[in-house]
């Protein structure tokens, strides 16, 4: 037996470890997600809803704006009107498909914008600390003090309604909470040794944030944001219901629900359709968000 010492022996020993394909974080998350059947089902629903909204012009059997005085409030299952018609005789299926475009956009876009703005502000506040942190976080607290529905209604109302002001209102509503999540995550990560190590190499703050902080802050922000989509859809629907959202005749689920409510005793099932659509989509977003939370907690 020969004597081998030190790193030579150690080096060989590490090379003995059997090869296996390294998996990235997101890869592992995807793998864990695929194990979770319920989440997959609801994710499919969301994807179908988005696809049908995107391809509404191709799928829709009728023009969603074409009114018909003779075919008003037809029940579900009427020939050529699969889901019936509304109070102006417009095809419900087509309007739901087109309405999905607006409702989903109002659900997803404000959250995306808020992730961008709130997330960045939060990272900045968390990384800089001190006065910057106080300034940003106290401003957020002011927004926090208002109930979110009230704030959305107030902003949208003062701006005179419409899709654009609704979008802005919802974005502003979501910024504080996302900012807080990002700030908390950043503060935790900032104190870890690998950030110290990066500082010890002489890296600039910008480089450290982009290379080491963002990637670690993203998962918790992402999980929280996905749960906000359903809230956003509901709030957008609420704004439209109050006449502060999308302007008629552009279809939108919330606004459709509002318009059809006079006909609730005549065609209750048809009137409930936009509500069911809102319910299913927002529930799906919620459950997928829960699934994500589980899948992203890779430590276990």
């Amino acid at each position: 037996m020969t004597t081998e010492i030190g790193p030579v022996a150690a080096r060989r020993a590490d090379a003995v470890t059997p090869a296996y394909k390294p998996k990235g974080y997101w890869h592992t998350v995807a793998e864990r997600l695929s194990d979770d059947k319920a989440t997959i089902v609801f994710l499919t629903i969301i994807i179908l809803a988005i696809l049908s909204a995107v391809f509404a012009p191709i799928i829709a059997p009728h023009d969603p704006y074409a009114t018909s005085m003779i075919a008003r409030l037809k029940p579900i299952g009427t020939e050529s009107y699969l889901l019936g018609t509304d109070e102006l005789g417009r095809d419900m299926l087509s309007r739901l498909l087109y309405g999905g475009r607006m409702s989903l956009a109002m659900g997803i876009l404000p959250v995306l914008f808020a992730v961008g703005i709130g997330g960045l502000l939060g990272v900045l506040a968390g990384f800089a600390g001190g006065v910057t942190n106080t300034l940003i976080m106290r401003t957020m607290d002011v927004f926090y003090a208002f109930p979110s529905v009230l704030l959305a209604v107030a902003i949208s109302g003062t701006m005179g309604g419409g899709a654009a002001s609704g979008l802005l209102a919802l974005t502003l509503v979501f910024i504080p909470s996302l900012c807080r999540i990002a700030e908390t995550a950043t503060t935790q990560i900032r104190s870890l040794d690998f950030v110290e190590a990066a500082r010890a190499t002489g890296a600039s703050s910008l480089s450290i944030i982009s290379r080491h902080i963002i990637g670690n802050v993203l998962p918790p922000v992402f999980i929280y944001a996905s749960s906000l989509v359903s809230v956003s859809i509901l709030l957008a629907a609420g704004l439209s219901f109050l006449g502060l959202g999308v302007e008629p005749p552009t279809p939108d689920w919330g606004q459709m629900l509002s318009n059809l409510r006079q006909a609730i005793y005549i065609q209750p099932l048809v009137c409930a359709l936009p509500g069911i659509a809102i319910f299913i989509v927002s529930l799906s977003f919620n459950l997928v968000s829960d699934g994500l939370r589980h899948a992203m907690d890779v430590k276990s």
Partner: peptide
Amino acid sequence: SVDIEAIPGN
């Protein structure tokens, strides 16, 4: 002046 007799590997 000499290395420690480490157990190689993991």
